[in-house]
Design a protein around this nucleic acid. Structure first.
Lengths: 253, 253
DNA sequence: CGCGACGTTGATCGGAATCAAGGAGTGTGG
DNA sequence: CCACACTCCTTGATTCCGATCAACGTCGCG
């Protein structure tokens, strides 16, 4: 609608060139001139409030999105109206690729916290990408990373032990926080236990017990949504091997 | 290795223009001239035998693949050496996207049956796509469909009832066979019970029992790997709702 | 024919779902 | 400032589904 060609300082400063996520996001690997072409099509509107949706089931593909801060979940709604969590999206991670196949969204993207979002109109992105090989390359790479996250998610769900899934989940989150420059050992979960449960295919009580168990074993410290990973090596081990060695412990190892 | 510029009749006939999967694969929506550009970079080598691999864990991204017939599975190997099945690939479905993110394959693609495969060198594909907007568009769409299949897979794994997962699995396969012009109700599974189990996060015995149960309930007919879906509506219902209505039945409905 | 891979079926056991209750944190209004 | 309501999280008791162990059946092939 309002395509203001007026470049004031404030909006420039909010552009890709100043963004801390630059190296992870679409701009990675493209030069300053090219960056401007990209920047021109990116829309940065008011913050999205917790609970708001970027798009709904069935909406036509109009744009892809990247959060600059905050977090999102993507959910699909089953016939009976119960929701499955298909993914969590931290800053810098592309949102909206679920519409690439059919041209319409097959899930909904819900803000887990108030977030500033970059909206990239898809058609324009595609045509600019066709002209800038390095952007095309980066677009494919970013899509690929999204595929990788889906496969990591599969890797959790295919595990049969709840403890393994939970350990993998925390381990993966830790990695992702590290990537965006946050502490990999201390962070605040943006999602509820129920969201985690619906992401991991578990009952929420099981998630809660899993956290408690990890805390009892000295692997993490958890207070509500605050997580502090104390023994990342052990978390790693639990995530991968069977975790059945220690029958049960009270204190630390 | 052997880049024969000689276009004999046989190899032309094997090209995209003659392929029955044309409308589902990369050529969809592109015109005859453009098709030739694509065709020139596609390599069609000898059939891949059952058990052979298109690529292995860690291999650099050199190409993406599409089977013209036969079938593949993609697997990831856990630390302990046990394999997880990340996906099954029927004819026309792109294989090899797992390397887009990191530039190297994070899983292995194994032939489930002898298959004829089209190999599309990735760099050439990307550069041709940049020149042909309709190919770029189609490439993104095909990638999107692959993402959709991953999400369908997630949708199975997140279910907590084994019966639901199995019903969803058969239902999804049926759809995919329909798409490629096979009978959606009668087909031969290209994979073993163990593969299905590792795909669904179940024990192979549970898969076997699930099939038996569906047969007892008159939903399918199953003999070894031959499947005949008798009541697709019921299969659909089982896949989506809770399946807990009928406590137990002996004969047919 | 006999071997080996694959599939089915049965019996038992354990882990996670479910049901149920209570506690902790947050925000609102009296 | 506190009472209240609400959401979110934890913990406990019980039940049940699916993993596991084990044995047998079947098919394809040398």
């Amino acid at each position: 609608m309002s395509e203001a060609p007026v470049l004031d300082l404030a909006s420039l400063r909010r552009g890709c060139a100043f963004c801390s996520l630059q190296q992870l996001c679409l701009p990675a690997g493209i030069n300053a001139q090219e960056l401007q072409r990209l920047d021109e099509i990116v829309r940065r509107s008011r913050p999205v409030e917790r609970g708001e949706r970027l798009y709904r089931l069935g909406d036509p593909l109009t744009a892809v999105y990247v959060a600059r801060d905050g977090a999102f979940k993507t959910i699909s709604i089953s016939e009976e109206g119960e929701e499955q969590v298909l993914g969590f999206h931290l800053p810098g991670e592309l949102i909206g690729l679920d519409a690439l196949g059919a041209g319409a969204h097959r899930c909904e993207a819900v803000a887990l916290a108030t977030s500033n979002v970059c909206e990239v109109p898809f058609n324009q992105l595609a045509s600019v990408a066709a002209q800038l090989p390095s952007l095309q390359q980066q677009l494919l790479k970013v899509i690929g990373k999204s595929v990788d996250r889906d496969q990591d998610h599969l890797g959790m769900l295919v595990r049969r032990q709840a403890g393994e899934r939970i350990a993998l989940f925390l381990h993966g989150l830790s990695e992702r926080y590290r990537n965006i420059g946050h502490s990999p050992t201390q962070f605040k979960l943006p999602m509820s236990r129920e969201d985690i449960a619906r992401y991991l295919g578990l009952a929420l009580e099981t998630v809660s017990r899993g956290f408690t168990r990890l805390q009892e074993d000295g692997v993490i410290e958890v207070v509500g949504r605050r997580i502090d990973i104390r023994d990342i090596a052990e978390l790693d081990r639990l995530a991968h091997s069977a975790e059945n060695d220690e029958p049960r412990r009270r204190g630390r190892a």
